[in-house]
Simulated scan of single mutants.
Amino acid sequence: MSELVFDTVSVRYGSRRRALTAVHGASLTLPSGQVVGLVGESGSGKSTLARAAVGLAPLTAGRILLDGADARRPRGRHRPVQMVFQDPYASLDPRMSVGASVAEALPRGTKGPERRAEVARLLEQVDLDPGRAALLPSQLSGGQRQRVAVARALAGRPRVVIADEITSALDVSVQGTVLNLVRDVQRRLDLTMLFISHDLAVVRYVSDHIAVMHLGRIVEAGPTDEVLTDPRHPYTRELLAAVPRRGRTGQDDGTPAVPDTLAATEPADPHHPPPGCPYHPRCPAGPLVLAGRDACRTEDPAEDAATRPHRAACHFAAPTAPARPQPPRP
């Protein structure tokens, strides 16, 4: 078991006026042997943070530590942090057989019969018939290709696995099967995992902890049930309010309705985020709605987030949020 720590990580692309800060001072801990779900709307920086952990995105500032050591430093062919990507077809070489793709990730020195036996074992571990090892990715379904991608990640004998939107490209009928597989493998191997999704119901199903990301920042984090039943950041509450629920006809859960002026406001430009709290121009509890909250315009709430419940990056983090139903299980 291993603990992965993102310590004030920033990822910045470009320079000067055209620069884009995709991740801004993100701090997050993945406890050993547990699953942390990372949620947020498209463009919030979730995938960039994941890619930084495996060395596919540059670090502008901060550190990523695995049990206190640099997680990005090469250790020969051994990669203790492995990633499963969103599109399984794009992440597998279409010219290589399933078995060859999995075998390529095995540790150096695994040869001959031992290599073939290990590939068969890994395919069985993800509920795939080892007889399919000779097939090409194009000869498999989307769900089967994603299982191969999981087997390939496990072939590297990782201590941490990052799953980036691994069900979003799959049919709904297949998503539940893949989620059950991921949860079963994680528990059986006692892996530490970062599970990225925009679907709160999926994250609730697989995660022990949850972190919410907005405009490159972690704005709230804590145990899954606590965050989803008692959210402290307005952005988290807005994400929950957007979850469809049976019989729902509007704002019937105690959450104030979003004023029309805010609903029509465009999201902040990530190239030029507003000063203070980046969420304040769209915040239903911010200075455009409530008096006496001018601090949101000028002061960054992330600086003292550690002193608030769920490390909420909000000057006026709700002490108690209205009770609301949790997202349905998938």
Rank of each mutant, 00 (worst) to 15 (best):
M1E: 15
V9L: 00
V11C: 06
R16S: 14
R18Q: 13
A19N: 02
S27P: 10
V36N: 04
L38K: 09
V39Q: 02
G40D: 07
S44H: 00
S47D: 09
T48D: 07
A52Q: 04
G55V: 07
A61M: 03
A61S: 14
A61R: 09
G62F: 02
D70T: 15
R73E: 11
V81N: 00
M83I: 15
L92E: 00
L92M: 00
L106K: 06
K111H: 13
R116S: 14
R121V: 13
L122M: 14
E124G: 15
E124M: 12
V126L: 00
R132F: 11
A133T: 07
L135K: 12
L135R: 10
L140Q: 10
G143F: 06
A155L: 06
R157E: 12
R159G: 14
R159Q: 12
A163W: 08
A163S: 13
D164T: 05
L170P: 01
V174W: 01
L179E: 04
N180Y: 12
R183Q: 13
R188V: 08
F195G: 09
H198E: 05
S207F: 02
I210T: 06
G216N: 01
R217A: 12
V219M: 09
V219A: 04
D225C: 06
V227S: 08
V227H: 12
D230C: 13
R232L: 05
H233L: 05
Y235I: 06
Y235Q: 03
R237I: 08
L239M: 11
A241I: 07
V243I: 07
R245P: 00
G247N: 05
R248P: 03
T249S: 15
G250H: 03
D252E: 14
T255F: 14
T255Q: 13
P256Y: 08
T265P: 08
P275A: 01
G276K: 03
R282K: 06
P287L: 07
L288V: 09
V289I: 11
L290I: 15
A291D: 15
R293I: 13
D294N: 12
C296R: 06
E299K: 08
D300M: 03
A302E: 11
D304Q: 15
T307N: 11
T307F: 10
A317W: 01
A317S: 03
T320Y: 14
R324L: 07
P327R: 07
R329T: 10
R329A: 15
